[in-house]
């Protein structure tokens, strides 16, 4: 019998390929400081994955590369020891203890970034250059073409953000674009039912719009906070979608 190719690592390869334009754009903007930061996260994350590989025979996933890039881009600026602790905490308690990419509830990037954000409230949040937003477009096209991106979540979020912005169609900003595509729409994290995906996307848009109106904070902080809350509510949204499915069946066939 024949076997197909869409196992976890194939999806992870597409996921990494989509992040490449983002990485190049960000490195061009940040220069050598960014490169060192990325290398640092890659090493810490790699050590964590290697430890779980050796001790628990848990296969590493290429998706860890994307998580490392997101942490390097979005985490607040802290000292190297604190940073290493935060990154390790994110990888281990966000993903690896649950069984790796595809089994966890949260993205390790969200856990690491929010851990550092809560632990060091005074730390400065990074400001993403505007060209990053444009680097997200080829990623979206690639992910949609391979069917990796849950398009309903993306559509739900964009719809709510456009409505909340008063139909003015302003550019959403680099932070929202990156967090929406690479954290909220992570196929391993996002809801799995169609309704759940619409709701997850809409919830992200709603939360970001709410934070934007009442909270004077950096866009990155607001976006990652919204992503964390959305990720935590995804099991609930999926349960809701299944309950709706059950109810609709009851009404269809008495």
């Amino acid at each position: 019998m024949i076997r197909g190719i869409w196992n976890r690592e194939t999806v992870a390869m597409v996921w990494v390929a989509a992040a490449l334009p983002l990485a190049v754009t960000w490195l061009l903007a940040e220069g050598s400081a960014g490169a060192i930061r990325l290398l640092f996260v890659l090493i810490v994350g790699g050590v964590c994955q290697a430890m779980f590989t050796v001790i628990r025979a848990q296969r590493p996933s290429l998706a860890g590369l994307v998580s490392a890039l997101l942490i390097a881009m979005l985490a607040p600026q802290v000292g190297p020891l604190q940073f290493a602790l935060g990154v390790a905490f994110g990888f281990v308690f966000g993903e690896l203890v649950f069984g790796g990419w595809g089994r966890s509830v949260l993205s390790p990037a969200v856990v690491a970034i929010m851990f550092l954000g809560f632990a060091f409230p005074a730390a400065a949040w990074p400001h993403l250059p505007v060209q990053i937003e444009w680097a997200v477009f080829p990623a979206v096209v690639l992910l949609l073409a391979f069917g990796v991106l849950p398009w309903r979540a993306l559509a739900g979020a964009v719809l709510v953000l456009v409505i909340a912005g008063g139909f003015a169609l302003p550019p959403f900003g680099s932070a929202v674009a990156v967090v929406l595509v690479f954290i909220v729409c992570d196929p391993a994290i996002c809801a799995t039912s169609p309704l759940g995906r619409w709701l997850a996307g809409a919830l992200f848009g709603l939360l970001f719009a709410l934070f934007g109106s009442v909270w004077q904070a950096s866009a990155v902080q607001m976006a990652v906070c919204a992503a964390l809350l959305v990720s935590l509510s995804i099991p609930l949204l999926d349960e809701l979608a299944i309950a709706v499915w059950r109810l609709s069946g009851r009404f269809r066939h008495g």
């Binding site: 869409w6 690592e9 296969r59 595809g102 089994r103 990796v148 849950p150 391993a188 996002c190």
Partner: peptide, 14 residues
Amino acid sequence: RASRPEPVIATSAV
């Protein structure tokens, strides 16, 4: 031999 099976990622192919 030692590891748990890899999880399935919810892509549109699935």
